[in-house]
Design a protein around this nucleic acid. Structure first.
Length: 1194
RNA sequence: GCACCCGUGGCUCAGUUGGUUAGAGCGCAUGCUUGACAUGCAUGAGGUCGGAGGUUCGAGUCCUCCCGGGUGCACCA
């Protein structure tokens, strides 16, 4: 065996064991009817950027559960992947493009379609970089995902599911076209979602104007109606003035009109109605009258929906300039920016005498997160999914939101902690229709082709087109004729009527014909928009398992798997049989699947050319590719099926795409998707009852956006089956100031930096100790000086409206003045005082200069624990010389053995309970306390004499020690997998056969001579080892109580030793007064007093007298005396005892009062009363003892 | 405005259905250089559980109000 270093080296273990697991296929999960399944779908990270602490927490929880279930015998799938995150990713790439090249997306091609292709291409490259980085970060943390199954929301598998779902919903009439006010970013010329908008208080003005009231002929009546606005330019789009129906100032005007002072009668009505609407107008606010601009204000739009006769006028172009409605009476503002037009209008209104007043006001203005510019409310056509009750064309009733609420109501899905069910239900109960179209280029393009029918002859042409096309197949193509002004879809459209002002929308099923080619040029144009990112991520749980393909398992990606053995992969047997031996030789090549009667083969380790040369060397691979292909084909010409070869790392070079890597059988009856029914929650699998556990582990901010939508699409697509049974919501990680961590605040910590400093196990262990049920964890962070590793605390810095975090010892100014040097961190360590850069959102660091990383000392918790555990194992292994595996019987066990086994069983059961409720913090504490405070501090110390003793007692101690250590390594594997695998391999080397505690016998059954520990050989790897199932009967409360009496006594002796400063090497005498039973018990463990605190038990019994000049302690049941003639200061000892007495008397008083209270005695439960009585007796006995000592001393 | 969460020793957090003397880690103090571990060992100090009421034999735990911190959703002419 190699030497065991004193310090655990996490980096070495990480480098060694992750590739080991991956190559062995330990993370792989494939359907196995003999095993129950456990599924976790990763909350897919965005490819926008690298992972942060929140992801680390999220990943740790999932990996913990996955590893735990895997050891318990579940086929545990943790599905990895990433999200294309439409708007966020496109915005990042566009912003970089603009900063670095001065290009907008429109500059990328001559036509929009061309530019679109170029942009998407660029984003794809960005995605490749970050996807890789994200996956490598996750692997560094030890994530045991089935990495063969990595999915991306835009890949072909997900795209199929998206198109099928869209078609299904469309033909069910659940998808419709409607108007909606969006937040329009005039700078990026795109809509931004509500959650991508931030509010900023901006200095603005609050103008009051008036509109003259006119009579029916349009002549002024002399009256005017006053109103206020912060955006005067919207007057161009006013279509009404609104008052409250009970506002007596205005009731006589309702139904009359006002004249827009300078409106152009050629483009619009110049007289607009005065309407009453209680929801819009508020008597108390402003003048009580409000102008209505439906196209540019959400409330006004809602008012218009209630009063459609007033009409809508959109006055803006996409770039924020005013459109043709800017051509007004006496001026032309078309093409001028809205803010400039605002000034013109104020001036014009003033000239015409309609200005009343203006005041300064701070206005909360919505800004785009992406461009940081103000957004404009902008009315546009969007696609929606109906969330509430709906009748499908076939008459069936659906209610997507309701179905998702019911699933939680019926407990098909449970939230942990349960309070989050409320967030979920509250949001769903609004049943607000889901706007699914986004004006972006990066995403799933909406599979709709449309054309407008302007007049009757147009309609006839389109009608003939549709009817005559051979591509029209009612099952694959769904046509929706959207009549003017009608938002909801008609019933399944027959192409009969084709009235003017109609839109014809065609949606094609994924398996339908290629409409793009068929209809392009026929007047049909594909919708330019893409789908909301959440539309594809909502399908994640079933799409990644291959839905809607029922005939093939989802394809897998083999990436960087390295050399592996043929038999280590879970390949269906039938496929295995197909491989000719000549291909399988050297275990280097294995079949991947069959496609179009072609066998796909991957080779991994070494391919020999005919001349014996190694063709797998990376540099040579490409050049000799053709040769290999030919060679293999030639080799197999006797086979009726043609053979294609593909290589794991470079699939695409062989002309195969990811989707070619399909597991499918050439035999018809096996050709079905097994992965979906096995891993998606079903109660049965292959006709047998099936135990599937599945949990979604996520943070609370996406309960609505993501969790709710996964449930409703899951129920909709999967015949009413929920996508997961549990939802665990974990806390958020905040910085030391209590703010969320983010790049823009400069307080984001890169988990990889932490892993580098403390080790992955330490990070995992610390993180899981945070993950409790009460939300939000503060993680104070520091900058680490790159020169001397000094920790530099952060401080907050207010910058404009944002708060950023910067080092507290800083040289330089914020914001950085033009041309001035960037601020730098100055190390506060007097011996260092060197400067360095630091992570900040304020500017990019120079790549060459040293950078202070962000770390947190909190992770020493985990690091120290790992090291402690390492050394405990080290101690055990150093003491295993001469170990022989054999049975241990109950009567061979010492007190400490029985105790540690009782504790072990208790803790193992606790861990199962806690993990089952996702209480990671409690589980972590339990295993830590056991390992450190019980196993190390007491058990190891107590068996040291036996390990140095005679052969027989040494052998028993070794066996029990090894059994406990073995269980401990297993129990810790989910928490700290790397160190456990390292220890496991060392244990397998030293003691391949070791005791696995099993068996039903009670430890305290002295008459039993049955073996309670049975040796057996262990699994190769800890990751696959059996999870400890320790008999609950080993837990022995009485024994644990006996043991704590011993512990308390030892602590009391140590206390005396510390107080009187007795050197560690000096022995003391100990006398104990106790009941005969306790005295006997103490005598039986007398050697431990000597061992643990150098105290020699001289006497124990009921009649032991306190020797003069003794230090004393009283524990209620027992009193102890340590003769310290000469050492003891009588006055000090007296003082100490008096203090103790006062303490005891205080508690005694309270306890007596309780028992004197008749109501307490009569109404409290019996065991509580008995407990108090016991406590009283104990206290009284203590008081008596202490009093006696005091009398003696004074 | 509505909803949810949090406030426990200097710091970060536990505290199960109310029930004997409220716990831990870090930090602090004192003492430990020989074999598992100073990323360690031993001992100790430090808390009227944000405030005020209430329910109860009994409240850190339940109820009401208030104060402070956070989050989500709505709204802001």
């Amino acid at each position: 065996m190699s030497e065991i270093p004193k310090l655990y080296d996490p980096q070495e273990a990480q480098a060694k064991w992750f590739p080991y697991w991956e190559q062995r296929g330990d993370f792989n999960a494939d359907p196995d009817p003999a095993k129950p399944s456990h599924t976790i779908m990763i909350p897919l990270p965005n490819v926008t950027g690298a992972l942060h602490m929140g992801h680390a927490l999220n990943g740790t929880c999932q990996d913990l559960i996955t590893r735990w279930r895997r050891m318990q015998g579940y086929e545990a799938l943790w599905m990895p992947g990433t999200d294309h995150a439409g708007i966020a990713t496109q915005a990042v790439v566009e912003r970089r493009m603009l900063e670095e090249e001065g290009l907008t997306r429109h500059d990328l091609g001559k036509t929009t379609e061309e530019a679109r292709k170029v942009l998407v291409n660029r984003i794809e490259r960005w995605k490749d970089v970050y996807e890789k980085r994200i996956i490598s970060q996750q692997k560094k943390l030890g994530a045991s995902c089935d990495w063969r199954r990595v999915r991306f929301t835009l890949d072909e598998v997900c795209a199929k599911a998206v198109r099928r779902t869209f078609f299904k919903m469309f033909s069910d009439g659940l998808i419709f076209r409607g108007k909606r006010l969006v937040n329009w970013d005039v700078h990026l010329q795109t809509a931004v979602a509500d959650d991508e908008v931030f509010e900023e208080d901006t200095a603005g003005h609050f103008w009051t104007f008036n509109y003259p009231v006119v009579d029916e002929a349009g002549n002024p009546t002399g009256e005017a109606i006053r109103f206020s606005t912060t955006r005067p330019e919207t007057m161009l789009g006013d279509t009404a003035v609104c008052v409250h129906p009970t506002d007596e100032r205005y009731t006589h005007l309702v139904g009359k009109h006002v004249k827009l002072p300078f409106a152009n009668p050629e483009t619009r009505d110049v007289n607009i109605p005065i309407i009453a609407d209680a929801l819009l107008a508020d008597k108390e606010k402003g003048t009580g009258a409000v102008k209505v601009t439906p196209a540019h204000d959400p409330n006004d739009y809602a008012c218009y929906m209630r009063n459609p006769e007033i009409g809508v006028i959109n006055i803006l172009n996409a770039d924020g300039t005013i459109n043709e409605y800017g051509r007004v009476d006496g001026a032309d503002w078309q093409g001028i920016d809205r803010l400039e037009v605002r000034q013109h209008i104020i001036q014009r209104m003033t000239e015409l005498g309609h200005f009343e007043s203006v005041e300064d006001r701070v206005i909360p203005l919505k800004h785009s997160d992406r461009s940081k510019t103000p957004v404009e409310p902008f009315l546009s056509d969007q696609w929606f999914v109906k969330m509430g009750p709906h009748t499908k064309p076939d008459g069936e009733h659906v209610d997507l939101a309701q179905s998702a609420m019911d699933a939680v109501e019926k407990n098909d899905i449970r939230f942990y902690p349960s309070r989050y069910a409320k967030t979920y239900t509250d949001w769903l109960s609004e049943k607000r229709d889901w706007c699914i179209s986004r004006q972006l280029w990066w995403g799933h393009r909406i599979p709709i082709w449309s054309t407008a029918v302007r007049d009757v002859s147009d309609g006839e042409i389109v009608k003939k087109q549709i009817e005559s096309r051979n591509w029209f197949n009612p099952d694959k193509v769904y046509v929706w004729i959207q009549a003017d002004g009608k938002a909801a879809p008609s019933t399944k459209a027959k192409v009969t009527t084709m009235t003017p002002n109609t839109f014809v929308h065609i949606c094609v099923d994924d398996n339908g014909l290629n409409l793009e080619q068929s209809v392009t040029g026929e007047g049909f144009v594909q919708d330019p928009d893409v789908l909301d990112t959440w539309f594809s991520s909502a399908l994640w749980p079933h799409a990644t398992l291959g839905w809607p393909d029922t005939e093939h398992n989802p394809p897998m990606m083999l990436q960087d798997v390295g050399p592996f053995k043929l038999d280590s992969l879970s390949i269906p047997k039938w496929l295995f049989d197909l491989v000719p031996e000549s291909i399988a030789r050297e275990n280097t090549i294995f079949p991947i699947g069959v496609k179009d009667q072609k066998l796909l083969i991957a080779c991994a380790e070494k391919i020999e050319g005919s001349d014996g040369s190694d063709l797998t060397a990376a540099a040579e691979l490409e050049a000799k590719l053709e040769f290999i292909l030919e060679r293999k084909i030639e080799l197999l010409t006797s086979d009726p099926n043609e053979i294609t070869v593909c290589i794991d790392r470079n699939v695409e070079k062989f002309g195969a795409t990811q989707t070619d890597l399909e597991f499918s059988s050439p035999l018809g009856d096996i050709a079905r998707n097994e992965v979906l029914p096995y891993f998606y929650p079903h109660d049965t699998y292959q006709g047998q009852p099936h135990d599937n556990k599945s949990v979604l582990i996520t943070s609370r901010d996406i309960i609505t956006l993501w969790v709710a939508r996964m449930v409703l699409t899951g129920l909709y697509n999967m015949d009413g089956k929920v996508p997961f049974r549990h939802v665990h919501v974990h806390p958020k990680i905040l910085d030391g100031f209590g703010q969320t961590m983010s790049k823009s605040k400069g307080n984001g910590v890169d988990p990889v930096d932490l892993i580098h400093k403390y080790g992955a196990d330490a990070i995992r262990f610390t993180i899981s100790s945070f993950a409790g049920e009460t939300q939000d964890v503060r993680l104070p962070i520091s900058y680490e000086c790159p020169h001397c590793e000094e920790m530099v605390p952060p401080k907050q810095y207010k910058l404009d409206n944002a708060t950023v975090v910067v080092p507290s010892t800083l040289k330089g100014e914020f914001p950085v003045p033009q041309g001035a040097p960037k601020p730098v961190l100055v190390c506060p360590n007097k011996k260092c005082k060197q400067e360095s850069q630091f992570t900040t959102p304020l500017y990019d660091p120079d790549p060459d200069a040293p950078l202070a990383k962000m770390v947190s000392e909190r992770f020493e918790y985990g690091r120290n624990f790992c090291n402690k555990f390492w050394n405990a194992a080290r101690f055990a292994m150093l003491n295993l010389e001469g170990y022989t595996p054999d049975e241990v019987t109950a009567d061979q066990l010492q007190l400490e053995d029985q105790w540690i086994l009782s504790r072990l069983s208790t803790v193992a059961h606790q861990i199962d309970e806690y993990l089952g409720r996702y209480q990671f913090d409690a589980a972590t504490r339990a295993i830590r306390d056991f390992t450190w405070n019980e196993f190390c501090d007491w058990y190891l110390e107590m068996i040291k004499p036996r390990l140095r003793g005679e052969i027989e007692e040494r052998a028993i101690a070794q066996r029990v020690l090894l059994a406990v250590l073995d269980s401990l390594v297993r129990l810790l594997q989910p928490f700290t997998p790397f160190i456990c695998e390292e220890l496991w391999s060392r244990l397998n080397e030293i003691a391949p056969e070791r005791a696995l505690p099993i068996g039903p016998n009670r430890l305290n059954d002295e008459s039993s001579r049955c073996s309670i520990l049975v040796s057996r050989s262990c699994a190769d790897a800890c990751i696959n080892a059996e999870w400890p199932a320790l008999p609950a009967t080993w837990q022995d409360t009485a024994l644990e109580q006996r043991f704590s009496r011993l512990q308390e006594t030892i602590v009391a002796i140590r206390n005396v030793r510390a107080i009187y400063n007795i050197p560690p090497g000096t022995s003391v005498k100990l006398l104990m007064r106790a009941t005969p039973e306790v005295a006997t018990d103490m005598q039986s463990v007398a050697s431990q007093f000597d061992n643990l605190t150098k105290a020699v038990l001289e006497a124990a019994g009921a009649d032991v007298e306190r020797p003069a000049g003794s230090a004393s302690f009283s524990l209620g049941e027992t009193d102890g005396y340590i003769p310290l003639e000469g050492l003891i200061n009588t006055a000090e000892e007296l003082e100490r005892q008096k203090k103790k007495l006062a303490e005891v008397e205080k508690h005694l008083k309270g306890t007596q009062a309780k028992l004197n209270n008749e109501k307490f005695v009569s109404s409290a439960p019996e065991e509580v009363v008995n407990g108090v009585k016991e406590s009283l007796a104990n206290l009284e006995s203590q008081r008596a003892s202490i009093q006696e000592i005091i009398d003696d001393l004074s």
